[in-house]
């Protein structure tokens, strides 16, 4: 039995006619063709499917879409704005913080939620915030450096934009 579900993803409104027992991950990938969000374990163990829901990084493989109707959902596709990459995307590229890249969308979303909620970041805080995101290629050191670099840039841009 299908159902109409209203989702707001990256500021765009979608009406999705889908099975209500599909997870948000399945709906994003299969119904909305937003395949940037990756499926890894599908059991909450790897963080590859992390998306931001109302500012919080959550695991889309364990979220039911009906429970997030009316919420702001952000996926990796929404990171770049006006054709320009997000500071995190830039620093990941510059520092080579992706190898196979499979964990990267999840890492980026956990990192985005972090740098937007905390100013005073150090490598330990970044490690903790990313501790639900596994990287099989184990390039953690560069990922942490890249998040630190982007957080500094994020701070300086928000400072200038607030005058």
């Amino acid at each position: 039995m299908k159902k109409l579900i209203n989702l707001t993803v990256n500021n765009e409104h979608h009406e999705v006619w889908t099975s209500p027992h599909k997870t948000l991950l399945e709906v994003l990938r299969e119904d909305l063709q937003l395949t940037g969000t990756k499926h890894g374990c599908e059991l909450g163990e790897c963080g590859a499917c992390t998306v931001i829901i109302d500012g919080e990084p959550l695991l889309s493989c364990l979220v039911l879409p009906s429970e997030v109707e009316g919420c702001q959902i952000e996926t990796v596709e929404g990171l770049a704005q006006h054709g320009k990459p997000h500071p995190l995307q830039k620093s990941f590229v510059e520092l080579g913080a992706a190898q196979c890249g499979y964990c990267t969308p999840g890492m980026l979303m956990s990192a985005k939620a972090l740098i937007e909620s905390e100013d005073d970041l150090d490598p330990q805080k970044i490690r903790e915030a990313l501790s639900g995101n596994l990287c099989r290629c184990t390039g953690y050191a560069k990922i942490i450096e890249a998040v630190e670099k982007a957080s500094l840039e994020h701070q300086s841009t928000t400072e200038t934009s607030h005058g």
């Binding site: 909450g44 963080g47 990084p57 959550l58 695991l59 364990l62 956990s110 903790e128 501790s131 639900g132």
Partner: peptide, 9 residues
């Protein structure tokens, strides 16, 4: 418990 994402959920 588990990970940051799971503790929020």
């Amino acid at each position: 418990v588990s990970s940051p994402q799971l503790r929020k959920m």
